[in-house]
Amino acid sequence: MSRSLKKGPYVDEVLYKKVIAARDSGSHTPIRVWNRSCTIVPEFVGTTFEVHNGKAFLKVYITEEMVGHKLGEFSPTRQFRSHVGRNR
């Protein structure tokens, strides 16, 4: 959403076709993807993806607000660890 806007968004073509096909056939099964760097375009809204985070596939349901972000942004690759027992 910032630099290199002139280059246009990166959308994986194979994935794009898959999404369109799934949408037109009315299928709601999640699409498994590894393409974390693929930008979410308006056509993806309403689709469910399973985005790989290096270990597992996390379900991501695409809403209108997510357009312009990338798939990987919704599938954290690191586990947040904090210390137990401290009040917070």
Partner: peptide
């Protein structure tokens, strides 16, 4: 608030 709501990476960092 929008970033937090859609739970994207940047939103999570704000939450934490």
């Amino acid at each position: 608030a929008r970033l937090r709501e859609i739970r994207c990476y940047r939103g999570l960092r704000h939450i934490r």
